[in-house]
Nucleic acid binder design. Structure first.
Lengths: 189, 189
DNA sequence: GGGCAAAAAGGACATTTATCACGAAAATGA
DNA sequence: TCATTTTCGTGATAAATGTCCTTTTTGCCC
């Protein structure tokens, strides 16, 4: 069974089996294939996806067709277009699969219902979002204060596995440099 | 009276006078002078500050003494070192005043107590943090996908008033460029 | 297994940005 | 008010990064 979700929640609040069953009843499981697009720009975003396995990315594609990667998500991570999901507006980001992936997703409606009916879960989501906020602040600091090389080495030490799973061009896109520049940094020129 | 805080909360949840009085009882008011340092690197961070007036910044100062600005906060904004505050660890950021400022601050203890005792407020903080998360994602996208000039123009249209209130060198630090580069961008070279 | 498309590497050159240096203008504080 | 910082702009040069291109390698699909 997929108690990865339960483990993540229980790192923040403890749950009885009954409580977890109730939580889980608000989720739906769904599998996706590599290259499948989960969220398309311009469409409404109904779900927030929790990854049980696989790998996805969220990205913005600018008018010239260049893609900029905002986030990679692997096992135990959440991914969606948060702006569109939480504000019920149309997506400006795209989310797609870099590998076959298994997910549990929750609609906004179910998330809010769950938070209303079970304060523990409202607490969980508050803490989880706070941790996310902190992580994004650190990424911003890295982007404004570090050189491309430092950002590259930083990512390499933080997520060494990522480099075996995704093409370098996507790593470059995440770091905010071109793939040529990344190639030079990686080869120490 | 300072009902700026109440207004911000009521944009998300409605409160009776009694409820607001209860909320407010968890805050302490404090004024600061320009140049005063509110949070020092290496010290524990007890408070999250809500600005009633004035202007502050949070920044990281690297070993070479270079400052990188993570956030400006003006009226109606919150500021702290979130990582140190929420995790009860020592500050890695500095928060200081760019103008004389009036604040309402809340300790982590009071914040958690308030959330426990009043689910409305847990809802408020969850929504507020979510909105903050979304804003940071957009800033990250801007940093990895836009040129320095675009980032400058973006900030200029979003916060035109800021340019009259803070030195350009700090704007540059926020945008992740040197003050010389910013000066040239602003004068269209 | 073979063919094809994607990915990676690298060269040559253009552009952007950082660095260092200096002087003028503006703001600040005694 | 006056002296002292701070701020701002600008030039010259170096370093970093982007752009465009070709070649090689890899890996995937039928």
């Amino acid at each position: 069974m997929s108690n990865i979700l339960r483990q993540q929640i229980e790192r923040i609040v403890s749950l009885t089996d009954e409580e977890y069953a109730f939580v889980l009843s608000h989720f739906t499981s769904k599998k996706f294939k590599k290259h499948q697009i989960i969220i398309r720009e311009g469409e409404y975003v109904h779900n927030d996806y929790f990854l049980l396995s696989g790998l996805m990315k969220s990205s913005h594609i600018n008018p010239e067709g260049r893609e900029h990667i905002i986030q990679f998500a692997m096992q135990d991570w959440w991914i969606t277009d948060p702006q569109a999901y939480h504000n019920e507006t149309k997506a400006t980001l795209q989310v797609d699969c870099l590998e076959d992936s298994e997910t549990l997703f929750i609609t906004l409606e179910n998330r809010e219902k769950l938070c209303r009916e079970m304060q523990k879960m409202e607490y969980f989501f508050r803490k989880k979002t706070t941790a996310g906020y902190i992580a994004l602040q650190r990424r911003i600091l890295c982007l404004i204060s570090s050189t491309a090389k430092e950002r590259y080495e930083n990512l390499l030490t933080q997520y060494p596995g990522l480099f075996q799973r995704v093409p370098k061009s996507l790593i470059a896109s995440y770091l905010g440099v071109t793939r040529e520049t990344l190639s030079r940094l990686a080869n120490n020129n």
